[in-house]
Amino acid sequence: MGFKLLSKLLVYLTASIMAIASPLAFSVDSSGEYPTVSEIPVGEVRLYQIADGVWSHIATQSFDGAVYPSNGLIVRDGDELLLIDTAWGAKNTAALLAEIEKQIGLPVTRAVSTHFHDDRVGGVDVLRAAGVATYASPSTRRLAEVEGNEIPTHSLEGLSSSGDAVRFGPVELFYPGAAHSTDNLIVYVPSASVLYGGCAIYELSRTSAGNVADADLAEWPTSIERIQQHYPEAQFVIPGHGLPGGLDLLKHTTNVVKAHTNRSVVE
């Protein structure tokens, strides 16, 4: 069995187990497998329904001669939608809004960016022009300005110390501490036991640490421990890039980060 097929099978099995364990909360999309990078042309966006009122959005972007996937989250909030992270750029984010209108038909009224990198804030200006209120932590807003990236308009308070959590509509926002970046936030959907790890969490097929220019490698494993301790009931975990899975993604990420750190020390 090929690795790609095995990865998709694991996603399907995880979703099936969740649907059985929580039949009222989960209505997993039966329309197909989780979209992969090879299936999404740059400039297009796919939506994948995880649970009743919960979707991931998947886009792709060219970077350094390669094409990478990027995940975000959409959560229903009454007759409105909360968006977590842009679709990595203005063109993708405009396509995301169009796809949401086509498939869901509810307005996106608020959006949260989970850290300051372009795959999370690139497209904020498109959201703002569409009347979406954009939010991020003060740290993310400051770092985005320093980096020359787009800056969300509103500040999220109460997320300055490791372990801080605040309720934001249908989700809980959690600051686990520094990891992929010093400002990275985690998003949890309690009604569906869905954990969105953003770039602080890796997919299972990833074996290298990737972009760690703004990471705190020493603190990252401790931050992941905080996530595990705060959300032990999480059933569906979405990484910032690639295929979702279960809580095993947290341990896998820790292993990859520690291996990278150990290699760096040896070198």
Rank of each mutant, 00 (worst) to 15 (best):
M1T: 03
G2S: 07
K4V: 11
L5S: 06
L5T: 09
S7H: 06
S7N: 04
K8S: 12
L9T: 07
L10A: 06
L10Q: 07
L13P: 09
T14G: 03
T14D: 11
A15C: 12
I17N: 03
I17L: 04
M18R: 04
M18W: 05
A19Q: 15
A21W: 12
P23N: 04
P23F: 06
L24P: 04
L24Q: 13
V28M: 06
V28R: 09
V28L: 07
V28P: 05
S30N: 07
E33R: 07
E33F: 13
E33Q: 05
Y34T: 07
Y34L: 11
P35V: 11
T36E: 13
V37G: 09
V37I: 07
V37C: 09
E39T: 06
I40K: 08
P41N: 12
V45H: 03
R46D: 07
R46G: 08
L47C: 03
L47Q: 03
Y48V: 09
Q49R: 09
Q49G: 08
Q49W: 09
I50V: 07
D52R: 06
S56N: 09
S56T: 11
H57F: 12
A59T: 05
A59N: 05
A59M: 09
T60Y: 04
S62N: 11
F63M: 05
G65E: 05
G65T: 04
A66Y: 05
V67F: 09
P69N: 11
S70G: 04
N71A: 09
N71I: 02
N71Q: 08
G72A: 01
G78M: 08
G78Q: 12
L81N: 01
L81R: 02
L82W: 15
L83T: 15
I84W: 01
D85F: 00
A87V: 01
K91T: 14
T93Q: 04
T93D: 00
A94Q: 12
A94S: 13
L96N: 00
L97T: 05
I104V: 12
I104T: 11
G105V: 14
L106P: 04
P107E: 11
T109R: 11
R110T: 11
V112R: 02
S113M: 05
S113A: 14
S113E: 04
T114W: 01
H115V: 00
H117R: 00
H117Q: 01
D118F: 15
D119S: 00
G122V: 07
G123A: 02
V124A: 08
V124D: 05
D125F: 04
D125S: 11
R128D: 05
A129I: 05
A129D: 14
A129H: 08
A130C: 15
G131D: 10
G131F: 13
V132W: 02
A133H: 13
T134M: 03
Y135Q: 01
A136G: 10
S137F: 04
P138I: 07
S139T: 14
R141P: 03
R141Y: 04
R141E: 04
A144R: 10
V146Y: 13
G148Y: 08
E150I: 04
I151E: 06
P152Y: 01
H154R: 11
L156S: 01
L159Y: 02
L159N: 00
S162W: 14
S162N: 05
G163C: 04
G163T: 10
F168G: 02
P170V: 15
E172A: 13
F174Y: 13
Y175C: 02
P176T: 01
P176I: 04
P176K: 02
G177T: 00
A178T: 12
T182K: 13
D183V: 01
L185Y: 02
Y188E: 01
V189R: 00
P190C: 03
P190T: 13
P190E: 09
A192P: 14
V194S: 04
V194M: 09
C199E: 00
I201N: 02
Y202T: 05
L204W: 11
L204A: 12
S205D: 06
S205Y: 11
R206K: 14
T207Q: 11
T207A: 10
S208L: 12
S208T: 09
N211K: 08
D216A: 10
D216E: 12
L217M: 13
L217A: 09
L217Y: 04
E219D: 11
E219A: 10
P221T: 13
T222A: 11
T222P: 11
I224V: 10
E225F: 14
E225D: 15
R226S: 06
R226H: 06
A234M: 15
Q235R: 11
Q235M: 08
F236S: 05
V237E: 01
G240I: 04
G242S: 03
L247K: 14
L247C: 15
L247Q: 08
L247E: 14
D248I: 07
L249I: 08
L249H: 00
L249R: 00
L250M: 06
K251S: 05
K251T: 05
K251M: 13
H252R: 08
T254F: 14
T254N: 05
V256H: 12
V256M: 15
K258G: 08
A259P: 09
H260W: 13
T261Q: 08
N262V: 08
N262I: 08
N262P: 13
S264F: 06
S264D: 14
V265K: 07
V265S: 10
V266A: 11
